[in-house]
Amino acid sequence: MSLRKILVVGSTGKQGSAFVRAAAAHHPEDPASDASSSPDPRFHVIALTRSPASPAAKELLALGDNVSVAAGDLNDAASVRKVFEDEKAKPEGGIWGVFVALAFAGLGADPAGEIAQGMLITDLACEYGVKHLIYSSVERGDEARDDSPASSHSAKIQIERHVKSKQGLNWTILRPAFFMENFDGFIGRITLSVLRVGLKKDTKLQLIAAEDIGRLGFAVMRSPSAHSGQCIAVLGDALTAQELQDAYARGAGQAMPAVPNALAYTLKAMNKHARGIVEAIEDVNADRVASGTSFEELVVRCREIYPEMQTFEAWARARNAQAERKEGWNGVSLAGLLRGRL
């Protein structure tokens, strides 16, 4: 029975931890999805973390014997290389696959650090003969916009290009849509209101629950040859601003929290990043309409890979209202928005 050791970069984040949990729940008796692999592969997940003694790392370690934790800092190349070397020296062989979800530096932050981290892990995966790498990037519509100097996704675009440039490296790039979690907390209320006043009535916002990215990623890792060399838009729903509010009301049983439209108009006028988010969503919507590929087709494709992908209504129903994200998780504050900064 073959063993696939998977290194998870970003293991304590929502995407990475969801990948680890999905792998930990996988049992050898489950039928193998990949016809090109040995029957019934086993997975062992190595959760890369700067702090193996942290509560989040210990929680992952407690998931089962097929999960281990390795100390490594993406800002310290030697520490990450050591993880690859240590696994290579073991009798069962080195790291077979890598799942990469890099920490979000914050809106308006210098992308240099994220780019360096993405390039480092890609280079090491190639050097150590990793069989498949999955990189979680961002959904942005037509790649023709990638070279726009105004693009807010420059780090992920550069990392994608680096991944694609590596000869002999099999890869899949996931392009997650707008996180449903962006509607959590007070900043989430502002987000809804800015989109409500900023988007055209028929513009569809593509949505994904962050945990579903990791779960879909594990499904891809189980069938790598079926998805090799593909860039996959990852979404569980696509809704207009009004449909978004209606879906939330059905799921949560109450109206979606928001701030007054007057405040949203003010923020949109004063803050270029708020305007940029609205414009980016409009661009993606226009690109999808022009491509002839419907949002429904994209959702169906994701469900073919991971059938339990959540709709926004289902996410709202399941969401624990007492466990909202800590304010400032994405580098955004109300004071910063009002000053035109993030």
Rank of each mutant, 00 (worst) to 15 (best):
Q254W: 02
R222H: 03
A255T: 03
S291D: 08
G236A: 10
G276W: 00
E279A: 06
K204R: 11
H227G: 04
A219Y: 02
T240P: 04
A290M: 03
V234N: 00
V220I: 15
R250L: 03
A269Q: 00
A226Q: 14
F218R: 05
E297G: 04
G253A: 09
A219E: 15
D246W: 02
M270H: 09
T240F: 05
R301I: 03
R288Q: 14
A219L: 04
A210E: 15
S228P: 01
G292P: 01
A233S: 08
V278W: 00
E282L: 02
A262D: 11
H273C: 00
A286K: 12
R288A: 03
V300K: 10
A274N: 01
Q242L: 08
C231G: 06
A249I: 03
A269I: 00
L216P: 06
L235P: 02
P260E: 14
A233W: 06
G251H: 02
T266D: 04
N271M: 02
Y265F: 15
L239P: 04
I232Y: 06
D237M: 12
R275M: 03
D202K: 07
Q242A: 12
G217P: 02
Q245R: 11
Q245F: 01
A264W: 01
E243S: 11
N285C: 10
R275V: 01
Q206G: 13
M221F: 13
I232A: 03
V259N: 07
A241L: 11
R301F: 07
N285G: 04
V289N: 05
R275D: 02
V278S: 01
D283F: 13
S294F: 11
S228Y: 04
T293R: 12
V300Q: 09
A209L: 06
R301G: 04
L244E: 09
A252G: 05
D237C: 11
V299L: 01
G236N: 03
M270Q: 13
D287S: 14
E282Q: 15
E243H: 12
E297M: 05
T293E: 15
D202H: 08
V234Q: 06
A290N: 09
A210S: 12
C231D: 11
A209Q: 08
L263D: 05
A210T: 15
I232P: 02
V299I: 15
A233N: 09
S228K: 10
Q242K: 08
V289K: 10
S228C: 11
L207V: 08
E211Q: 09
K272V: 10
Q206E: 13
A247Q: 12
T293F: 02
V259P: 01
S225K: 08
S223I: 06
A247N: 07
I232F: 08
R301D: 07
L239T: 08
F295M: 12
A252I: 10
R222D: 07
G276Q: 00
L239Q: 11
R222K: 11
P257I: 01
I232K: 03
E296K: 14
G236T: 10
A258Y: 06
M256Y: 13
D202T: 13
R275K: 14
G251Y: 05
C231L: 09
L263N: 00
D246Q: 12
A219P: 01
R275C: 00
E282A: 03
Y248P: 01
A210M: 14
R288T: 13
V220S: 03
A274S: 10
N261I: 04
A210C: 06
A241S: 15
V220W: 09
E296S: 04
A241G: 12
A247G: 05
G251Q: 04
